[in-house]
Design a binder for these strands. Structure first.
Lengths: 97, 97
DNA sequence: TTGACAGGCAAGTCCATACTTGCCTAACGT
DNA sequence: ACGTTAGGCAAGTATGGACTTGCCTGTCAA
């Protein structure tokens, strides 16, 4: 599970997608495509974004639900909390007095 | 800079190296090689580990200093703190009361 | 000084993955 | 019913990066 999380965060385009979802939640694939192109100058195909979203979902960073012909995407930041935790110094991790 | 940080964390072997440095700081290249092989069953060449350490250093996650013919490596976890921060929900980021 | 030890440099290989193109399904509006 | 819109499912390509092998530099002990 950690594997997919870090792999998801490794790509700059995926991190930008997360940025956009923080800025505005509940976006469709086409909305994300438009914002990547307009606000970030990323000329990426719709399929590319779709695949990125799949990776983010596999990592648990994005949850999606379908409504009619739309599929809305929401960010879930909870997995990010465990990252710094993993390599926290032992005393910060709860062994010292 | 964020780019190198996430790229460094993307590889499972590099994350294991960080684990080992948390367990015991100030290790040399050969020590790390030995622990990867013994404790984790990772059959990786010395060059491989050396390249991984270079990536970790570029990301600021590892600092090294040479003493005689030894080069000791220490972990630096401060870059990890900024990760969850980046995608913190706006109210957690300091706008709400 | 010679040999053993710790590490660095520079190719070369090979696999994962980011990205595209093309076609296909499903839900709306008119 | 038909066209449009939102999205999915494959392929195929190609660039990055993990890993190795071979050789070279520098430090210490005998």
């Amino acid at each position: 599970m950690a594997d997919e999380l870090f792999k998801a965060l490794a790509d700059p385009t995926r991190r930008t997608i997360l940025d956009e979802l923080v800025d505005r939640n509940r976006q469709t694939l086409f909305e994300i495509c438009a914002r990547l192109s307009t606000k970030h100058g990323l000329a990426i195909s719709r399929q590319g974004v779709s695949q990125h979203l799949a990776v983010l979902e596999a990592a648990g960073l994005v949850v999606s639900r379908r409504e009619g012909r739309y599929k809305f995407h929401d960010i879930d930041t909870t997995p990010l909390g465990h990252i710094a935790e993993r390599w926290a110094s032992p005393d910060t991790r709860g062994s010292a007095p």
